[in-house]
């Protein structure tokens, strides 16, 4: 996916974009439909998201994440501004008080691709109750305390499931680091 987006950024490659569109449009629309009042509103927000992908492809930084994560954040921001009355505050990397990252390692793009693949596999291996929790949280945009209420679970249980899920994902990534150092 990353090379398709690069082709969009570099050459305004419509074929590459069509491939991206056919993969992501239904998924982004399903994501929007969780909050939108009807399918037309979901379609409109999906179109806005994909338009931003087309226009902002050059801003995608493969060292900092993979394509699906990037598209998720664009969709999330558009959904928040469409359906929430309050804002989602964001940091600004250009700000003089911003503390920059530590010295980057040799091949961040490669590492970030490897990480994304590791994460994808680790997500599939998550126990269903942990996976469901992440799904509710990402797609239905409900906070962990609301999830606790909705599922009729103690808040502590929800919190510990989140921690366990992230501990598993972290472990999957650390395995890779250890293999690299071997």
């Amino acid at each position: 996916m990353s090379h398709l987006l690069a082709a969009v950024a570099r050459d305004r490659d419509k074929e590459a974009f069509e491939t991206l569109f056919r993969h992501y449009a239904p998924r982004v629309k399903a994501y929007m439909a969780r909050q939108a009042r009807d399918s037309q509103a979901a379609e409109e927000l999906m179109q806005e998201t994909m338009m931003a992908v087309w226009n902002k492809a050059a801003l995608f930084d493969p060292e900092r994440g993979n394509v699906s994560a990037w598209i998720f954040t664009i969709a999330r921001n558009l959904r928040v501004s469409a359906y929430r009355k309050d804002r989602r505050p964001e940091f600004d990397p250009q700000d003089p008080a911003f503390v920059p990252d530590d010295v980057p390692s040799a091949d961040e793009e490669y590492q970030s691709r490897q990480e994304a693949e590791r994460l994808r596999i680790a997500m599939q291996d998550l126990p269903s109750e942990q996976r469901e929790l992440l799904q509710l949280s990402f797609f239905n945009e409900v906070s962990h305390s609301t999830i606790a209420k909705d599922l009729n679970l103690p808040l502590g249980t929800v919190k510990s499931r989140i921690r366990m899920a992230f501990a598993k994902l972290r472990a999957a990534l650390d395995d890779r680091l250890m293999e690299d150092h071997r």
């Binding site: 994440g65 990037w70 999330r76 990480e115 994460l119 994808r120 994902l169």
Partner: peptide, 9 residues
Amino acid sequence: EAAAGALMD
């Protein structure tokens, strides 16, 4: 965010 992207994928 990568985990969210993977779920969406």
